[in-house]
């Protein structure tokens, strides 16, 4: 057990290990990749992404072209190009013209922009799903647009948006595996590194898949709890 916690753990894994032994010995490095990179990458990108999404959604709901046009262009560009290409542009592309960004922040930027684009549509739709009467009632008691949005509309829209936002979140967990391609040593990158030494691709990639599955399973349980909590005071 003790040797599993050594920092140069990869060196202790060799090609002539048995299947079960290899599985056990590679578990900790992968979990470490998950804890150090996959999960922080997911959480930070999701929070930043939601902030971007809220701004974009409100811009798109405006009736002024100089707000709606940039917002639409942003959503179109991000949704219309592959995440892998975006990651490559931010890390390799910008690096090649002298604007070098480290792998981890590069990944944060790419994933945040992605969540921002996709979640903005979810937030926009859930704001639109709140009956017009709620805006009108807010106006008649004297509320400004931002007061109505903050105190009346968004709390209700949040409830509507939880299931689709959970989808985005779970997709994000899995998408972070793409960060392996820009050298972030997250969970899948660890699996790749070990597989490259032992040639046991099947075993290690299935092991990685199981770990992703466990993370997503736990997240969907949390989602159910949050949903149940927000459903408490809702008229049906």
């Amino acid at each position: 057990m003790a040797k599993m916690f050594q920092s140069n753990i990869l060196l202790t894994i060799s090609a002539d290990m048995g299947g079960w032994e290899l599985f056990q010995n590679s578990l900790w490095p992968m979990i470490q990749g998950g804890i150090k990179y996959t999960i922080p990458l997911t959480l930070i990108s999701f929070v930043l992404g939601l902030s971007i999404a809220l701004i974009i959604a409100i811009m798109r709901l405006s009736n002024r072209k100089y707000f709606t046009f940039p917002a639409r262009a942003f959503v179109s560009a991000i949704r219309g190009t592959p995440l892998l290409v975006q990651l490559s542009i931010i890390f390799y592309g910008l690096g090649s013209i002298g604007l070098t960004i480290d792998p981890f922040p590069s990944a944060i930027i790419a994933f945040s922009l992605n969540v921002g684009a996709y979640a903005s549509e979810i937030i926009r739709a859930s704001i639109l799903s709140i009956p017009k009467g709620q805006w009108e009632a807010s106006q008649t008691i004297g509320m400004s647009y931002s007061q109505a949005l903050r105190r009346i509309i968004l709390p209700q829209a949040t409830r509507v948006s939880i299931p689709p936002l959970s989808n985005t979140f779970i997709s994000l967990v899995k998408d972070t595996s793409l960060a392996s391609l820009i050298l972030v040593t997250e969970l899948f990158r660890k699996a790749q590194e070990i597989a490259a030494r032992t040639y046991d691709f099947m075993l290690l990639y299935i092991e990685a898949a199981i770990l992703y599955w466990i993370i997503c399973f736990v997240l969907s349980i949390i989602q159910d709890r949050v949903e149940a909590r927000l459903e408490r005071h809702i008229a049906r």
Binding site: P131, G133, Q134, E136, A137, I152, P155, Q156, H233
Partner: peptide
């Protein structure tokens, strides 16, 4: 007519 109370 439809009250429009704040449900939350």
């Amino acid at each position: 007519q439809s009250y429009n109370l704040f449900p939350h």
